[in-house]
């Protein structure tokens, strides 16, 4: 079964580059493209793709970052059956923007320097409903939940902190480990790693710790 994707990025050159790289994977089909917020919303509504590759910063729209607005305006697609899943793709280092897009419903975040095969893997992973965490996003998450300072949840489903296992997984991902390697490292299955990562994503989307701590400003010095 092929995965149908829509490519949203305001740089035509980058879109064609991604297309060319993804062409190597026969199970991925690019069905649509868009270059700004409005056309992205229209393209998602028209094609109903499996996965949308979404740039965090997009022109058009009323709010910033543009990627979040696309997600907000496509909110019903996120919960529809079958759902449209979003993978954020950006060069941006601004943690606020990346986290804003994740909180709006994206299932993961990768940087644009990602290799073609890695991107294809990430697309498949998102399509299966799993979360995709790049080292950078893992770093943002550890910062956001104060995990760097040793805060650990007492119970696993506490929303505002990571459990020690989740923290361990995030740390390994931040160190550059692939899911498979994380699993091997922690003597757990890849499926369990995916469960942990999805749990972290859920916490990231539901927790209000992000607003409470304004960590982006406060995290600078202990």
């Amino acid at each position: 079964m092929t995965v149908r994707i829509v490519l949203v990025d305001d740089h035509g050159m980058f879109r064609s580059g991604v297309r060319a790289e993804l062409a190597a994977d026969p199970t991925i089909e690019v069905v649509g493209q868009a270059g700004d917020v409005d056309s992205a919303v229209a393209a998602v509504a028209e094609h109903r793709p499996d996965v949308v590759l979404l740039d965090v910063h997009l022109p058009g729209g009323l709010t910033r970052p543009g990627g979040r607005e696309v997600l907000q305006r496509c909110a019903e697609c996120l919960t529809a059956q079958p759902p449209v899943r979003f993978l954020a793709l950006s060069v941006s280092d601004a943690s606020e923007d990346v986290i804003a897009v994740i909180r709006a419903g994206a299932r993961g975040y990768v940087t644009k320097t990602i290799s073609g095969p890695d991107l294809a893997r990430a697309i498949h992973r998102v399509h299966q409903g799993d979360a995709v965490f790049s080292p950078r996003l893992a770093g943002f998450v550890l910062d956001a939940f104060g995990a760097g300072t040793g805060e650990v949840a007492a119970v696993d489903d506490e929303l505002d902190r990571l459990s020690s296992r989740e923290r361990e997984v995030m740390r390994l991902i931040a160190r550059g480990y692939a899911y498979k390697e994380v699993a091997k490292e922690l003597f757990i299955s890849v499926k369990t790693v995916e469960t942990h990562v999805s749990a972290v994503l859920r916490k990231l989307q539901l927790s209000n710790r992000y607003e409470l701590t304004r960590w982006a400003a406060d995290r600078r010095l202990l």
């Binding site: 320097t113 080292p135 950078r136 893992a138 770093g139 550890l142 910062d143 995990a147 760097g148 300072t149 931040a174 550059g176 995290r219 600078r220 010095l221 202990l222």
Partner: peptide
């Protein structure tokens, strides 16, 4: 050669 850096927390 690209070196990706992730830093969590900070100190003097």
């Amino acid at each position: 050669v690209a070196v990706d850096v992730v830093v969590v927390g900070d100190r003097d």
